[in-house]
């Protein structure tokens, strides 16, 4: 995982609320056994029509969206299934951050573990971003701030551990592997206790 400190990019705005992981990547694209290559199937049923042609009016397909690394999404983004293919598809497509008034729990965790920054901001700041698609903004992971197109800025919170993972590129697996002694102690105590209080 590469460290992520600061993201400066134009935005793409997808304002719908409750965008679930079945929309981010439909289940029929989950038949692979690899993490890469899923960007092509991101929002597949919205990006393409029944004949497989790109829909010109879908925000990601507009010419000005090319190369944008920040997705401004509606509330409760990433709800639904726990599939990690959702953040894989977003990062493989080129996104580095998702900005929303609220992001679904499981998705948020999956995002951090894959270096995709989940940015939850106040509704007023979010409205400002939604009203200005294509704005150039900067997300600073270290300070937890987003610069807004009107010159202001918004704060976002990350649990300290998630922030550290993003900033260092060292994930939870590295941390857990260092806890071997404690895990062993717990296991020895617990296998006698048969896991109940």
């Amino acid at each position: 995982m590469e460290p992520v400190v600061r993201i400066a990019s134009r935005t793409v705005v997808l304002p719908a609320d409750n965008v679930d992981t079945d929309q981010i990547i439909p289940a029929r694209f989950l038949t692979g056994t690899r993490r890469d290559g899923l960007g092509a199937s991101l929002f597949a049923d919205w990006r393409r029509d029944g004949a497989g042609e790109l829909r010109a009016d879908f925000p990601l397909n507009r010419p000005e969206a090319a190369g944008a690394r920040i997705l401004v999404a509606g509330a409760n983004f990433g709800c639904g299934s726990s599939r990690e293919h959702a953040p894989w598809a977003l990062t493989d497509y080129g996104f580095a951050a998702v900005v929303s008034p609220s992001i679904a729990d499981i998705f948020k965790g999956n995002a951090v573990r894959n270096g995709l920054v989940p940015v939850e901001i106040e509704p007023a700041a979010h409205r400002e971003l939604v009203s200005r698609p294509g704005a150039e903004i900067v997300i600073d992971v270290e300070t937890g701030t987003v610069s807004l197109p009107d010159g202001g800025s918004a704060r976002f919170d990350l649990p300290p551990f998630a922030r550290r993972c993003l900033l260092t590129g060292r994930g939870p697996l590295d941390f857990l592997l260092e806890q071997e002694a404690a895990i062993l102690r717990h296991e020895q105590g617990k296998d006698d206790r048969a896991e109940t209080p």
Binding site: S81, S82, R83, I106, G109, N110, P172, L173, L176
Partner: peptide, 20 residues
């Protein structure tokens, strides 16, 4: 509870997860 694939790897390797 449901977990993502990276967490599946964590549990396979350490039988543990980090939880808030």
């Amino acid at each position: 509870f449901g977990i993502g694939t990276t967490e599946v790897a964590q549990v396979l390797a350490t039988q543990c997860l980090l939880q808030e």
